[in-house]
């Protein structure tokens, strides 16, 4: 089936209700194209969406999907993949969902290295709840709940990922459609946890981290001779506070995904017995 799949097959019949101009349109388009381009179809794809404007993505895409509770998308995605490694699992959510309420899971999802992709739609703001500071908001970014700015440094998701043992770290920009799609595609194809932080501007509540800002400041690593397999170089890049980078910042070419280390190679959905499985009586005998 996959050869005939077009990216529009991943579109649901619900029209997005995002504000016109919201970065999430471009982010989602790139995800759908990347899924189609990597040979997936809606019936073998499982999308897990967080809660936020970004989390609405599950509703606008067509595939097996779940839109769960705020901040817990990553463990759901890992559970899906472990139970059926044949599925293509993609998790998507906002910067608040992933780096605030779900920050604990982020660290552990990175460590676990389940073979799935994680797309964070980073607008440096809480969009859905109408404009409060997010963990990636700038120190002096004024919002209704932080009139003087958060006055604490933003979370550095790339560095956090690297410190947690990430095997794939990338950053993209929703309005650079081609590069964004390419980068997501690389995350999907990566053998392990493919993490992409996508700058996905909120045109309604964030007048600082705008399209213009990203267009002017982003440095595409593909235009340089940067080697993403060099972990030492990656350390320097993710900690560089003066620049915003686009592209793959780190990839461990020897990454072994969780399923492989744990011998998970087939779906657990099937139960081929109507009673207890063969050999179950041995379990009772063990207690003699």
């Amino acid at each position: 089936m996959s050869s005939e799949v077009r990216f529009t097959d991943f579109k649901s019949d619900k029209q997005p209700t995002w504000c016109p101009g919201c970065g999430d349109f471009g982010t989602m388009n790139g995800m759908m194209k990347a899924l189609a381009e990597t040979g997936n179809d809606p019936d073998n794809t499982f999308v897990v969406a967080g809660i936020g404007c970004s989390g609405k993505i599950g509703t606008y895409m067509h595939s097996y999907a779940i839109h769960g509770v705020h901040g817990r998308a990553l463990p759901v995605g890992a559970g899906v993949k472990m139970a059926n490694p044949d599925l293509e699992v993609m998790v998507a959510g906002g910067d608040g969902d992933g780096y605030s309420i779900g920050a604990g899971h982020f660290v552990h999802a990175v460590r676990r290295n389940v073979d799935m992709s994680y797309i964070v739609m980073d607008n440096r703001i809480y969009g859905l709840t109408k404009g409060q500071a997010s963990p990636t908001s700038r120190e002096d970014f004024e919002t209704s709940t932080t009139p003087e700015g958060p006055q604490q440094p933003p979370v550095n998701p790339l560095a956090l990922a690297l410190a947690s043992g990430a095997t794939f770290i990338a950053q993209s920009f929703s309005s650079d459609a081609l590069r964004h799609q390419e980068i997501v595609q690389q995350a999907i194809e990566h053998d392990g946890f493919g993490f992409v932080n996508v700058f996905s501007p909120c045109v309604t509540f964030n007048d600082v981290d705008t399209y213009d800002y990203f267009r002017d400041s982003l440095v595409d690593l593909a235009d340089t001779d940067y080697d993403p397999t060099d972990r030492e170089a990656a350390k320097e890049k993710v900690l560089d506070a003066d620049k915003e980078y686009m592209g793959v910042l780190y990839q461990d070419e020897n990454s072994v995904p969780y399923e492989e280390t744990h011998g998970l190679d087939s779906s657990m959905a099937e139960i081929d017995h109507e009673g207890a499985p063969e050999g179950a009586t041995d379990l009772v005998r063990e207690f003699y």
């Binding site: 769960g68 463990p75 899906v80 139970a83 059926n84």
Partner: peptide, 19 residues
């Protein structure tokens, strides 16, 4: 799991996958 929030969400994911 890293905590019970993750535990039930992992289990939920596996259940959604059919296990």
């Amino acid at each position: 799991a890293e905590d019970e929030l993750a535990a039930i969400n992992l289990a939920l994911g596996a259940a959604r996958a059919g296990a």
